[in-house]
Design a protein around this nucleic acid. Sequence first.
RNA 1: GCCAAUGUAGCUCAGUGGUAGAGCAGCCGAUUCGUAAUCGGCAGGUCGUCAGUUCGAAUCUGACCAUUGGCUCCA
Length: 660
Amino acid sequence: MHVVLPDGKQLDLPDRATGADVAAAIGPGLARAALGLRVDGRLSDLLTEVPAGATVQILTGRDSADVIELQRHTLAHVLAQAVREHLEAEGHAPTSVRLGIGPVIEHGFYYDFDLPRSLTPDDLEAIEERMRAIVAADLPLERTVVERDAALARYRALEDPYKVELIEDLPEDVPITFYRQGGETGFSDLCRGPHVPRTGALPTHFKLTSLAGAYWRGDERRPMLQRVYGVAFADAAALEKHLWQLEEAKKRDHRKLGAELDIFTLDDDIGPGLPLWLPRGTIIVEELERLAHEVESAAGYQHVRSPHLSKEQLFIKSGHLPYYEESMFPAMVIDDQKYFVKPMNCPFHHKIYAARPRSYRDLPLRLAEYGTCYRYEDHGALMGLMRVRSMQMNDAHIYCTEAQFEAEFMGVIELYLHYFDLFAIDSYVMRLSKHAASGLGKKYVDEPELWIRTEAMVRSALERGGINFVEAEDEAAFYGPKIDVQITSAIGREFTLATNQVDFSQPGRFDLTYVDEDGQRKTPLCLHRAPLSTHERMVGFLIEHYAGDFPLWLAPEQVRVVPIADRHLPYATEVAERLTRDGLRAEVDGGNDRMNAKVRSAELKKVPYIVIVGDTEADAGTVSFRSRKEPQRNGVPLAAFSDHLARHARERAGQVEGLT
RNA sequence: GCCAAUGUAGCUCAGUGGUAGAGCAGCCGAUUCGUAAUCGGCAGGUCGUCAGUUCGAAUCUGACCAUUGGCUCCA
């Protein structure tokens, strides 16, 4: 047989040659340096046979981006070996350490175990030490293909249900391979590879980072395994950089900044996931509301209000009961009637639609409300402002005809893009979430042909609008497909921010109709949309996005006026009054600290402008300022300064043009 | 909800069986100062909660609550 090298040359080899044979045939130096290979572009390893005629590229330490994948994968096996040795050394039977899966992930790897006891953080240190010993021992890896029955028999003998299940689920035509490190008596694991050829080829720049529970195969009805996470990098600098980035991310964490900047707080007496907005946080929320109100009014929305409670009947009609009941706070009984706190605003808006007969002339009807909803989220899922139980939706429902659908849908997408531009959000993924036929009647309303039709409508609207998106199976809303915008927060967690959902179900359930031009009663479509997500999540995201350094228009306190001595207090007050009159949020620091201390405390609160006034300024009617937004200036006339700030705040400017 | 870790003053943290500590923040006083911490004093805690062990518990044990990291779920 022969293979093709990257330069196009053909290399003759005996049949069943492995990657290592290819490297050896090219030269002894390369054979020593080789760590893996790409076969027809796909990552493979030296232990695997190369198919005849394939294009083969040998990877060495220089191809670190590829090799690190192999190394992380092998490190997962080294981790498993170390965990087994660690527990065996304590006297546990080797078979009591059962292995789940151990894949490569971003920055590293993990391995899931079913163990005779819980691991502790101290164990991680000991396990890491054993891993380093395994790396230092430079154990050779071997790959063997095993008959399905032999593989099953092996794991049945070990009473390992996990590997048996994995093998049983492998398609018949896939060869079952094992990787073994350390020879006959070494550590062996079911694995499709690829791996580095020996543990000595692993970087020592790895670290076990955390310990977590994880359901077997991600299914909450199945056993919970213990997962050990690790990170690994090709060199020390990359590991250091990664750890440093984690530290930096922690500084942006909205929970930390939210407390430091007096934005929100959580109180045990109130309850988990029920945040309190402090005055400074309330300013931010109200600025968002003002923004949304302006943008929506210009886009033809009307604003409505609805109560927080309703009789169960409403949610039976909407279809939320019973399928959504476990996410709702339990009912309260009043006058022998069950009432629920609302988890969504939509049923109320449907009732507003139904409050009078509607004509096609009323459509599209766009009803907006920033109503607070309550959802009984799993305790373990709560997280700062990002995942809460009381949330103010940036909500609206658009009722329209099928003919109007595309324009309305794109109008909402344009709202997103407008907001993303305003907030300089440039890294996000738009996702079209679709139904799965298997969920019809359970997770999704049982209207197969409507699902297919609306999904096609959404897809064509997006394509015609030139919007990039990915499609996600089995992630739709109960009542229709949706477009979500996924963002990654500063601390590396993914969240859904904006959402835009098509609803072909609820209008019918509520008997919503309009009289069309032809005099016929017809059922409108409904769009549920929340381009600013919930105000809780949006503020949480913005805190991290700006690292607490808000643009002027969002900053809770825009100007801090610092008098140099007490005698400058009257002028400082005059400055603040002028700024306030121009619509700015300004405070005077009249305390008895030294000026330096006052500047420091204003900086710690990340106040965008600190105005310093002393004799010079008071005499001339000017201000001197230092700013987080533009270079420091002295002796600026008060009126010019106030106009400058007021203009930027009014325009919701992201960047400030320096005052000239 | 599940697995694990953590919980001491508003914040950051010390205190491993013998009467609760520090710095910062707060309050009071002195200082009146030119772009990131002036000095002194005062006050502040049922050590997450409830039980248990003990002559004695912040410290040991248990249950519960909350937070954090994950899993599941989601705006």
